[in-house]
C-alpha cells in the first residue's frame, strides 16, 4: 500500500468531522441526511484502510454492509423528508415539535 495508514485515518477523521458538522449545524433535513451519509463513508474509508493494513478481508465485508445500510437509510430518510415536506412545506427541523 503506497498511502500510509495514518494518512488514511486522518482523511477519514476529517471527513467524519465535516459530516458531523454538516449534520449538526445545517438547518435543513436534506443536509442532515447528507452529513450522516458523509460520516458513514468516513467510517467506510477507515475500515478499508484497516483491512489493507492488517490484510484482513473482514473490514471490506463491513464496508459492503455499510454501503447497504447507507443506501437503505437514504431511501427511507428521503421518503420521510418528502412526507414531512408535504406536511409542513419546509425542511426546517425546528418545526418537528409534535412531542412537546
Amino acid at each position: 500500500m503506497i498511502v500510509p495508514f495514518g494518512h488514511l485515518l486522518i482523511l477519514a477523521g476529517i471527513l467524519f468531522v465535516i459530516g458531523l458538522f454538516c449534520a449538526l449545524a445545517r438547518r435543513s433535513l436534506i443536509m442532515i441526511l447528507l452529513g450522516v451519509e458523509i460520516m458513514l463513508n468516513a467510517a467506510a474509508i477507515a475500515f478499508v484502510g484497516g483491512s489493507l493494513h492488517w490484510h484482513d478481508m473482514e473490514g471490506q465485508t463491513i464496508v459492503l454492509f455499510i454501503a447497504a445500510v447507507a443506501a437503505t437509510e437514504v431511501s427511507v430518510g428521503l421518503a420521510m423528508i418528502v412526507h414531512v415536506f408535504r406536511k409542513t412545506g419546509s425542511f426546517d427541523p425546528v418545526l418537528f415539535d409534535l412531542l412537546k
Partner: peptide, 10 residues
Amino acid sequence: QQAMIQYRLM
C-alpha cells in the same frame, strides 16, 4: 425529547 433534533444528535 422536545428540543430540536440536532441538539439531541449533538
